[in-house]
Nucleic acid binder design. Structure first.
Length: 571
RNA sequence: GGGCUCAUGGUAUAGCUUGGAUAGCAUAGGGGCUUCCGGAGCCCUAGACCCGGGUUCGAAUCCCGGUGAGCUCACCA
């Protein structure tokens, strides 16, 4: 990557020099990376000032530039200046860099900044369903990218163990006999408990006595009844164990779990209320509830009020979330929240309230749209869901079938391991490859896509490379560019050289969907090389080509790791 | 009703922030490739920027207005 920056510098300097010759030293221009050159400068913007057609400008500048350093050729075409990089230096440099850096290739140096990345944080009222499954996958992938960008990252799950939903669940668990709920097949706490949640909801709607019991429980909870609070906490903890198991299945583990009820217990939510009341934006309704009027903070709509206490003075979710964020900022430089699109307004209100509280930091939200079923929105309460656990199982099963179709030489347990890697890889890849803003409808065939632009395609290339290296046995690293002259080899090296830039885009700019696209680009380049260039029987070029294969393997493994996918050596 | 987001071949998706040279990729369709390192592969072919204005030498990209979809506007979490 360094070489690309250097190349860009040299091109900029050369163009600037040529323009000086043309008596236009201050004219502005940009560089871009096109398909048909290594770097290009469009000359259209200079047209007015130089009073010349872009085509002539490009030709004139090209005449004034002599290839030096990394620039081996300049040409003018259709009003563009096209520059060609010294391929020999690019090849040798890139391959040496990959060999030296290994796992660290494509990473940026440690920058000492602490990032707290909150993701998943689903309500502990039922198993994770695919409607929300983007959250852990996006969060975990972004965390991995940020680590590679040099940050110190802590991932965190905010557990909502306060409020009506968890109270309903707890009432169900404490009052409903085991025989009365419809048993879920799966032996996991989240699947077992959700049955109580559903029945409790149904009974609450139909039976006023139940409704009163739940209301009573909620009142006790609000009043600080330790017995009720700890029951709820225990239930939430039990549910969370099931959620953690699911997350582990898709290679997601979080560093820290923070409980919402802690901000009531330690009094910080109360403190936030007291601070907000002092604000000039604060007001109180006739009933006694407190709010902030955020109309001066760009909040639109028929109601610009942001309520932060109930009439009885108790705190709301949003108040506790404020306390939580203040707490977070004590522990990090940058806070990132991965949130569903339904949180957009809430997140904006949170930021405004933080500003009012005099907090100079704001969380950076990253939103994703929900995944719906063809028949509509998913709902845990109504039982209209596809669970993430079921998606994982189905993916692993399909991967197993594929492996069994083509391999008879692998022992059963190893086949199972590979199937797991491939199935989960397919699921994660298919979630990350689309832009988070894009809403999508869940379809089994698309979620389980195994060929073309898919996770297994990348893993397949990795496995192919591994297989070759294994067959090759001993060889010496050879980065002599004169032995790698095939167009397909050069194309592959160029793809490998872009990794650092992609890491930066994926992390710093949170464009994590660049990662699968890049992995696919590298894989295509490798498959084309593989299909047309012999390696093991290559004579003089054998070592150099094996080195290229090894470097591709290294880069692919790094991409896969960044995507939270395994890199099986065979499949 | 207000706000935010999305709209690209049959299907799915990239490019939009920072406007530029033939709009990329995948899948389904049609045709081809296995003497040789793994055919979950490779090659060829056909097919798309929601509609209408505007800005510009130049618009998928920026602006305005439509249309359609999602989310949102709680003393819920």
């Amino acid at each position: 990557m360094k070489i690309h920056n250097q190349f860009k510098d040299e091109v900029t300097t050369a163009v600037r020099g040529a323009l000086r010759e043309m008596d236009a030293p201050d004219i502005a221009f940009v560089t871009e990376v096109p398909d048909n050159a290594d770097l290009a400068v469009p000359c259209f913007t200079m047209s007015k000032e130089l009073k010349m057609p872009p085509k002539n400008i490009a030709e004139k500048i090209a005449e004034n530039i002599k290839p030096t350093g990394l620039i081996t050729a300049v040409s003018a075409m259709n009003g563009y200046l096209n520059f060609t990089i010294d391929q020999k230096i690019l090849i040798t440099d890139t391959l040496n860099d990959i060999i030296e850096s290994g796992d660290g290739y494509g990473s940026l140096p440690y920058n000492g900044k602490k990032i707290n990345l909150e993701h998943t944080s689903t309500n502990p009222t039922g198993p994770i369903h695919v409607g929300r499954a983007r959250n852990p996958v996006i969060g975990d992938t972004l965390a991995r990218c940020l680590v590679r960008c040099g940050y110190e990252v802590t991932t965190e799950y905010y557990v909502n163990d306060v409020g009506k939903q968890v109270v309903i669940l707890t009432w169900g668990v404490n009052n409903l006999p085991k025989e009365s709920v419809v048993e879920e097949e799966r032996d996991k706490t989240d699947h077992k408990l959700v049955a109580y949640y559903r029945l409790a909801n149904k009974m609450m709607e139909e039976d006023p006595v139940v409704q009163e019991q739940i209301s009573e429980m909620l009142r006790k909870f609000e009043a600080g009844d330790q017995n009720v609070i700890s029951h709820v906490r225990e239930t939430a903890e039990e549910m969370l164990e099931g959620l953690k198991e699911t997350l582990e299945q898709i290679n997601v583990t979080l560093d820290r779990y923070t409980w919402e009820s802690d901000f009531i217990a330690d009094g910080t939510a109360r403190k936030v209320v007291e601070e907000l009341k002092k604000s000039e934006y604060a007001g109180q309704t006739e009933d006694g509830s407190w709010y902030l009027d955020l109309k001066d903070f760009g909040i639109q709509g028929k109601n610009t009020k942001f309520t932060f206490t109930r009439a009885d003075g108790t705190t709301l979710y949003t108040t506790r979330d404020l306390a939580y964020h203040l707490n977070k900022f004590k522990r990090c430089d940058i806070a990132i929240d991965v949130l569903g699109e339904d949180q957009k307004l809430g997140s904006k209100q949170l930021c405004s309230a933080l500003e009012i509280l005099g907090c100079d930091k704001k969380p950076e939200p990253m939103f994703y749209s929900f995944v719906a079923l063809p028949e509509g929105k998913m709902s845990t309460r109504r039982g209209v869901v596809v669970y993430l656990d079921d998606l994982i199982d189905e993916a692993v099963d399909r991967a197993y079938e594929e492996i069994r179709k083509r391999r008879s030489d692998i022992p059963e347990d190893k086949m199972k391991d590979i199937a797991r890697s491939v199935g989960i890889g397919a699921v994660r890849y298919n979630i990350i490859r689309v832009h988070p803003d894009k809403q999508f409808v869940f379809k089994w065939d698309e979620a389980l896509n195994f060929d073309g632009n898919s996770g297994p395609y990348l893993q397949y290339v990795h496995a192919r490379a591994c297989s070759m290296l294994k067959k090759a046995g001993e060889y010496k690293h050879d980065t002599d560019a004169s032995k790698l002259t095939d167009e397909l080899e050069i194309n592959l090296v160029k793809a490998l050289s872009k990794f650092e830039n992609i890491t930066r885009l994926a992390g710093e700019e949170k464009r994590i969907h660049m990662l699968p696209a890049y992995g696919h680009e590298v894989s295509v380049a490798f498959n084309q090389f593989y299909a047309n260039v012999p390696v093991l029987s290559a004579g003089d070029s054998r070592d150099a080509r094996l080195t290229l294969v090894e470097c591709t393997r290294t880069v692919l493994k790094n991409i896969l790791t960044c995507l939270g996918m395994e890199s099986p050596e065979e499949m």
